[in-house]
Nucleic acid binder design. Structure first.
Length: 869
RNA sequence: GGGAGCAUAGCUCAGUUGGUUUAGAGCACCUCGUUUACACCGAGGGGGUCCGCGGUUCGAACCCGUGUGCUCCCA
């Protein structure tokens, strides 16, 4: 097969992807082999592929492809998440564009539009994953709202309710005024915001014109104040405790109370207490039996509690209230203040604490085994530093608010009768059976949906129908899964809760290893985001560079456990690597017509092959251990170096036949096999080009994608060392040529003075070729008017026609001498230290003595060389 | 405010239980080079007070303390 001049990824990529799918290589069924199961972190059904997905899924594909080539039975399950808030927001926006208001639709009508939208746009992202080469088992594509999945989520709700682990309660929640729904704590993003601290004085209900001043960043909440609280030991206010004050503008009378919760140093030391709109105030209110006055409507506008601002947004009121307080004489001062404000993860609205009746999961009992599983390393986190983060959260865990005031999602299976009694069962029919008392009563189902994560925590179980059809053959074979690859951002949202669900419903952990990827940032270290516009178009990049180059670029820049600073130059490096791979194959194929079966195997070629075999085996072992520790980036770098430097720059040059010369059949075949092995090693990282070249090299009996790795052969250390010596000598001599400005075309005569002539004799042909020497001979004494190069204890004399630049030679030798003498001094210092000689381990001592001997010998060599100049 | 982590070449990172050469790699940079694989290339080279200070030790990039700077998580 003739190779084209250049590698053309666009044709090759789609050809092989289709081929792999057609052959069913990605499809898994339970069998006798060990399972290697990975479930994809299901992207939002609304999602389009971004750099984060690219990194995450490339890593998964590397692990899965490698497992396949190691003879395991890998199963990588694709799918999408219904993403309740995000999707509902998109559907609402789409309807608005069509001029339809959500409020004008019934629930069923709205869901009709939502499904329509999902069928049309949902899953675009899954198509995009194919372009990247992901070896997902498409026959298993799942969705968190598939019918069976939906039933499982409901089943879990009912079960946890019956176990007393789910309850309904009026509590302070995070309210998203844009989506008009409750949020869990994890869905709130805290950001620093420049605001104002308002010092507001409240007139006291005592004779005279006295005031008490409070400080707040949310002045609009004064309408919900039901007390002012001071520290009992605060001398400034002690005398006011038990008295009353008036809320400015509305003149409502509120008590002044004392509690040691108050920080005397903060603000004025007096706190306005608004139990309806702050969690701490709420707790304080509970303790002191304070009234709760709500001031906000669902959409964040003020209600009748603030008569002068009804219908105005609370942030708008914050801007205008200062003037009004000023007018009423209540504003003491305004100062700049930086504080932390919560924003909705999905809508970016400023979150308002709000008292609300919601459904909760009691997390304490669920958390215990899940914490233990990670702390005992039954589940291993990579990098392990995330264990701390996890422990910290799990130990301080709070109950999980799971109800969302949305329609798109799993509807809460709770029914209410007219008196407000609650009945929980999987459907109304079931309620009627379980609760005969409901006979004749009208029941209404809870309007709310469950938090998205209340379904995704079942993902590793339900993709194998482990909830809807417990104990089936697949769940028993594929569960627990092997490795979860995900972003550290969702360690609480998802990872922790999957572990809880796994322990609760399977009695087993859901996965053995969790690999946390870094966050993808731009060159300047900023997180990639839509608003910054610093997120590159991934599909455009794949078109431009090819999927392999993108995979290479993103992996080479992702050190384990660190963030990834995305820079297009690494994709260029990937593309260049593609070219290198392609050209090396072209070179090999060029020799094919000149294969000779006659004659003996040349000695130098035999050495080259032995050396490369040793180097290959040693590197395979290294790569193996790196991958076991999830050091994927380092493994790729190692393979890159093996191919580019050791195979292409050294090995191929060593065995390269002269101009129009033949190549020995053994050498040719061995070189092809080496290359094939290299392609196989690289395949999990760059699947397309390796498959293409695997077939281009020779007629193959199987595809690389499913070709199992051979056992690694033993490393011949002696040959490895001889090769290293050869490389070093070549480099030193080339350096000498360069420094003496000997033209590359000019052949030199080389004289070697060494105690190990046999070593050099075995490699002299290679050496001659690599440094362009027309002759090599061995000598016992110095050669006149030559360039002297000292390497270790050996000396090399280069004889060229050109005049020798004695000065620069001398300079180099002196530099080397200074270095060696400095080194010797440090070694001698150590060895003359009695305590070192007494305390150091014998092997350390031996090493130091050898260092000294070597240094002395080298100094001797350099001095001799200098003397000859 | 509480917690975690990081600081090594211009950049991104390795550096295993403290001793394996006076610290390595890739990219970038500089010099030279178009001999039939590849200029998306080849050969060679330069470049570091291992963040500062103090300590432990015969010996510290590595261990301890402290300061500074940065990042992340939680409230």
């Amino acid at each position: 097969m003739e190779l084209s001049k250049n590698f053309n990824p666009s044709e090759v990529d789609s050809k092989w992807y289709q081929h792999w799918v057609d052959r069913g290589y990605f499809h898994s069924e339970p069998n006798d082999k060990p399972a290697y199961t990975v479930v994809i972190p299901p992207p939002n059904v609304t999602g389009v592929l971004h750099m984060g997905h690219c990194l995450n899924n490339t890593i998964q594909d590397i692990l899965v492809r490698r497992a396949r080539m190691q003879g395991m039975n890998p199963c990588w399950v694709p799918g999408t998440d219904h993403a309740s808030i995000a999707t509902e927001a998109k559907v609402v926006a789409m309807l608005r564009e069509r001029g339809i208001a959500k409020s004008s639709l019934s629930r069923d009508e709205f869901l009709g539009y939502a499904w329509e939208w999902k069928e049309k746009y949902g899953g675009i992202i899954l198509q995009q994953l194919r372009k990247m080469g992901c070896s997902l088992d498409w026959d298993r594509t799942s969705f968190t709202m598939d019918p069976a999945y939906y039933e499982s989520v409901i089943k879990v709700f009912v079960d946890l309710y019956e176990k007393g682990k789910i309850y309904r309660g009026k509590r302070m929640i995070n309210w998203d005024v844009r989506a008009k729904t409750a949020l869990s704590d994890e869905e709130v993003i805290h950001k620093e915001v420049n605001g104002k601290m308002y010092h507001i004085r409240y007139k006291l209900d005592i004779p005279g014109d006295e005031f008490i001043t409070i400080a707040t960043v949310r002045p609009e909440t004064i309408f919900g104040d039901t007390a002012i609280c001071v520290h009992p030991k605060d001398d400034r206010y002690k005398h006011l405790v038990g008295k009353f004050a008036f809320v400015p503008m509305i003149n409502r009378r509120i008590p002044i109370i004392a509690d040691d919760y108050i920080d005397i140093e903060f603000g004025t030391g007096a706190l306005k207490v608004t139990p309806a709109h702050d969690i701490n105030d709420f707790n304080l209110g509970q303790k002191h039996g304070l009234e709760v006055i709500e001031t906000l409507n669902e959409d964040g506008t003020m209600n009748e509690a603030a008569p002068m601002y009804i219908g105005k947004d609370r942030l708008e009121v914050r801007k205008i209230i200062a003037a009004d307080l000023e007018a009423s004489g209540n504003l003491v001062k305004l100062e700049d203040y930086v504080n932390q404000v919560g924003f909705s993860e999905r809508t970016d609205a400023v979150v308002e604490p709000r008292l609300s009746l919601q459904w909760w999961v009691d997390m304490k009992k669920l958390a215990a085994p899940a914490l233990e599983a990670v702390m005992s390393d039954e589940i291993q986190f990579h990098p392990a530093k995330f264990k701390n983060v996890y422990r910290h959260w799990m130990e301080g865990i709070k109950d999980w608010c799971i109800s969302r005031q949305l329609w798109w999602g799993h509807r809460i299976p709770a029914w209410y009768d007219e008196e407000g009694n609650v009945y929980v069962a999987k459907n109304e029919e079931e309620v009627r059976i379980k609760f005969p008392a409901t006979k004749g009563k009208t029941l209404t189902q809870d309007a709310d949906c469950l938090d998205t994560w209340f379904s995704s925590w079942l993902w590793p179980i339900e993709v194998f129908k482990g909830m809807s059809n417990p104990n089936n053959g697949e769940i028993n074979y594929y569960y627990p899964t092997s490795t979860l690859v995900t972003a550290p951002e969702i360690i609480f949202f998802w990872v922790a809760r999957m572990i809880m669900a796994g322990e609760e419903y399977m009695g087993k952990i859901p996965f053995k290893d969790v690999y946390f990827t870094g966050i993808v940032r731009d060159k300047q270290g900023r997180k990639m985001s839509k608003s910054l516009g610093n997120s590159p178009d991934l599909l455009g990049l794949i078109d431009q560079y090819g999927a392999d180059a993108v995979r290479f670029g993103i992996m080479i820049a992702s050190p384990a456990g660190n963030d990834l600073l995305f820079d297009e130059s690494t994709l260029e490096q990937g593309r260049n690597f593609n070219s290198k791979l392609w050209n090396a194959a072209k070179l090999l194929k060029m020799w094919e017509p000149r294969i000779s079966h006659e004659g003996k195997l040349p000695e130098d070629a035999a050495f080259a092959m032995d050396w490369f075999q040793a180097k290959l085996s040693a590197t395979q072992i290294e790569v193996d251990s790196m991958l076991k520790e999830f050091r994927l980036s380092e493994a790729l770098k190692t393979i890159y170096g093996l191919i580019w430097d050791d195979y292409c720059s050294w090995y191929l040059e060593w065995i390269k036949p002269g101009f129009e010369q033949n190549i020995h059949a053994d050498v040719y075949n061995r070189s092809i096999d080496f290359y094939d092995t290299l392609l196989q090693l690289l395949h999990p990282f760059m699947p397309f080009i390796t498959e293409e070249l695997h077939h281009a090299l020779k007629t193959q009996t199987e595809d690389l994608c499913v070709k199992e790795y051979e056992p690694i052969s033993k490393v011949d250390e002696a040959v490895l060392n001889a090769g290293a010596l050869l490389k070093n000598v070549i480099s030193s001599l080339r350096d000498a040529r360069n420094k003496n400005q000997i033209k590359p075309k000019e052949a030199i005569d080389l004289h070697i003075q060494s105690a190990q002539n046999d070593t050099y004799k075995a490699i002299q042909n290679i050496l001659a070729k690599q440094i362009n020497a027309k002759s090599i001979s061995f000598t016992d004494s110095a050669i006149a008017s030559s360039i002297v190069v000292a390497y270790e204890k050996d000396k090399f004399y280069l004889v060229a026609e050109q005049a020798i630049n004695t000065e620069s030679l001398k300079e180099n030798l002196l530099k080397d001498l200074a270095h060696q003498e400095g080194f010797l001094a440090s070694v001698e210092k150590k060895l003359s230290n009695e305590k070192f000689v007494q305390n150091a381990k014998p092997e350390v001592l031996a090493v130091e003595q050898k260092k000294k001997a070597d240094a002395l010998a080298r100094i001797q060599t350099i001095k001799e060389s200098l003397a000859q100049l």
